[in-house]
């Protein structure tokens, strides 16, 4: 083998882990969240940026919090507060809604699960 062969092999071997990581990383962790009012898409946000969001629904304002790749309802103007009780969502395919306020969130991305049962 010449030096060119060896460099080519080295480049391939160095590049492969990056290619692998780029395409197969983040198993189980959703990457973005979709926020809908009714069926209308309002926003699509990355889960890797911590922030708090306020969304106006049918009854009033729903408050959402994104932290460490997860999202949850922190407040909503519904009576039951079932949406808040559900806690953090982080897996792709998972979703949660404040149905009285018509606000729902859904995690997208290549994750561990295709769908969530509850």
């Amino acid at each position: 083998m010449t030096r060119a062969d060896i460099s080519l092999l080295l480049i391939t071997l160095v590049a492969l882990p990056f290619v692998y990581l780029h395409y197969w990383q983040a198993a189980g962790v959703g990457t973005t969240v979709r926020i809908l009012r009714g069926e209308t898409l309002l926003r699509e946000l990355p889960l890797n940026k911590d922030q708090e969001i306020t969304i106006e629904g049918n009854l009033g304002l729903s408050h959402l919090q994104i932290q460490n790749g997860k999202i949850r309802f922190t407040d909503s103007p519904c009576s039951g507060k079932v949406c808040i009780h559900k806690g953090w969502l982080s897996h792709s395919g998972d979703f949660n809604a404040c149905l009285p306020n018509r606000i729902s969130i859904e995690i997208l991305g290549q994750g561990k699960f295709d769908s969530m049962n509850f």
């Binding site: 559900k86 953090w88 395919g93 998972d94 699960f113 295709d114 969530m116 049962n117």
Partner: peptide, 12 residues
């Protein structure tokens, strides 16, 4: 198809 079953009492 692979699904997750949500915990009935998620720890906050």
């Amino acid at each position: 198809w692979r699904i997750g079953i949500r915990h009935p009492r998620p720890t906050p």
